[in-house]
Amino acid sequence: MHQIDPLAWAPLLAASEAEGWRMLRRLMDEWRSGANRYEQPGESLWAWFDDHGQVVAVGGLNREPAPGRAGTGRMRRFYVHPSWRGHGLARRLVNAVLASAQGHFSRLHVNCESAASAEFWTHCGFAPIAAGEPAERPARYTHARLLPQYQAA
């Protein structure tokens, strides 16, 4: 993905903000400023488009920022438009991102901000990081998955 067309992303952005999520606004702002274009080795940003060219689902992968653990990536900015939920798009995006992470990362982190999110990521093979293990738990991550080899979620 090399460009973000604001018109194609507008319905997804509006839906996310209506649900109280600011992650896609941050994605758009970081993209526009150049702060994060998902261009580092192993990074990727995936979007699912409908027949009209509108983005209906998104998910990305970034390298863990310094002083992060070497070989660690962050699954982030996953969101599916409410009218497209229940069609397996989130799972497809996760599998695409997991496949793209192979050879670049040995561990992936995700931050779950709701019980539904935690349940989804657990079903995708991510395990909760114990709050009592500060050496293993970066402050903003709740779940992790090791990648000795790719396995579909």
Rank of each mutant, 00 (worst) to 15 (best):
H2V: 14
H2A: 12
H2P: 03
Q3M: 14
I4G: 00
D5S: 10
D5P: 07
P6T: 09
L7K: 14
L7F: 13
L7G: 13
A8T: 01
A10G: 07
A10V: 04
P11F: 13
L13V: 11
A14S: 11
S16M: 03
S16K: 01
E17N: 06
A18F: 07
A18G: 09
E19K: 07
G20K: 03
G20M: 05
W21E: 12
R22E: 11
M23W: 05
L24W: 02
R25K: 10
R25P: 02
R26P: 02
R26I: 05
E30I: 01
E30K: 05
E30P: 00
W31R: 01
R32P: 00
S33W: 00
G34E: 07
R37T: 09
Y38V: 09
E39N: 10
E39C: 13
Q40N: 12
Q40R: 15
P41N: 08
G42Y: 09
E43D: 06
E43K: 07
L45S: 12
L45K: 04
W46E: 14
W46N: 08
W48C: 12
H52Q: 15
H52L: 13
H52Y: 12
H52N: 14
G53A: 04
V55F: 07
V58T: 13
V58Q: 08
G60Y: 10
G60P: 08
G60S: 12
L61E: 04
L61C: 00
L61W: 04
R63K: 09
P65D: 01
G68T: 01
G68W: 00
R69Q: 12
A70F: 05
G73L: 05
M75I: 15
R76N: 02
R76H: 01
R77Q: 13
R77F: 03
F78M: 13
V80S: 09
H81Y: 05
S83Q: 15
R85F: 01
R85W: 07
R85L: 05
L89I: 10
L89P: 05
A90Q: 08
A90F: 08
R91F: 08
R91K: 14
R92E: 11
L93G: 02
V94S: 10
V94Y: 05
N95K: 03
A96G: 12
A96V: 06
V97A: 03
A99S: 09
Q102G: 07
G103Q: 03
H104I: 01
H104N: 14
L108G: 03
L108A: 02
N111E: 12
S114W: 01
S114L: 04
W121Q: 03
W121Y: 14
T122D: 08
T122P: 02
T122H: 13
C124N: 07
A127E: 15
P128E: 10
I129G: 00
A130S: 15
A130D: 15
A131K: 10
E133Q: 14
E133M: 04
E136I: 04
P138H: 04
P138W: 02
P138G: 00
A139E: 12
R140V: 00
R140S: 03
Y141G: 00
R145S: 03
Q149G: 07
Q151N: 06
A152D: 07
A152L: 07
A152V: 02
A152H: 08
A153E: 02
